[in-house]
Nucleic acid binder design. Structure first.
Lengths: 142, 142
DNA sequence: ATGTATGCAAAACATTTGCACCTGG
DNA sequence: CCAGGTGCAAATGTTTTGCATACAT
């Protein structure tokens, strides 16, 4: 149960935190911006401020419950941290986000860091392209 | 000469544009934020607005003279586009930025896109870590 | 009760835009 | 001369913060 996850992180079990966790778990989209989550809360009738959404997400990130990714265009997306590392490929047209994990790339990253005398702390790897699924809007664009 | 580069891009050869090009060419740092460039202009006594710096950089990016990278923390860095693709590894402590190009990673990216049914348009690959150079401040941090 | 959390509004950034004035070709 | 460029200030979009109030433990 998630109440214990919060307590473990030293966070009080509050309604906003529970609701935000629930949305991240049950929304159809694993990847959501703070604004997405905020709107989703409003839609379900909750009266939770956007500032709280940001505060809670930041705390969750610190606690390792959530991970944040900086996408192009200066906005972040959040997702539940399942503990399994992966990177992302994003469709420029429909916004679809898919996850991948490529061991070859992960290995090369370590190798590159070593070659440059760095100890690797993190990386951001995002592929941008166009998915060719039937409902992707780019097919209609002139 | 760079005047022709500008003309080729359909841009008038103006003082701000020349100055910004010069800074990008001759500054010790290949990677600069808009603010960095703006400050550098002020230091050399130029009276050029920050808005102009952004406008010019955006035009240069469109013209392929400059490339922009979205770094962590929601700010962009710009660099002269030499035509040679590369990615970046950044020191979290001293901000040092080094460039690399790894053919294995580039290949895997194409492969991943294919596997997911995407046509790849671009990618952002940034490694974050700590460089172990003698003057890097992290060595002093307690 | 008491230290945390929250809501709201205001602040902080990075970046963009509207507009009157200036300037390169 | 005149389209395009620039400075400045105001607007944007995203995220953070100050503060008085409300809540979990």
């Amino acid at each position: 149960m998630e109440r214990s996850e919060l307590r473990k992180a030293g966070l009080k079990v509050t309604l906003p935190r529970m609701r935000i966790l629930t949305i991240l778990e049950s929304s159809g989209h694993r990847h959501m911006s703070a604004e997405d989550i905020y709107k989703s809360l409003l839609d379900s009738g909750e009266d939770i401020g956007l500032a709280t959404v940001y505060r809670v997400l930041t705390q969750f990130e610190t606690a390792g419950l959530v991970s944040r990714h900086n996408f192009e265009g200066g906005h972040s997306v959040f997702e539940l941290d399942t503990g399994v590392h992966h990177d992302h490929i994003v469709c420029n047209d429909c916004g679809r986000i898919e996850e991948f994990m490529n061991p070859v790339i992960e290995n090369q990253q370590e190798k590159i860091a070593k070659e440059h005398g760095f100890s690797l702390a993190a990386h951001s790897m995002i592929l941008y392209g166009r998915c060719l699924t039937p409902d992707c809007p780019h097919l209609d664009k002139k």
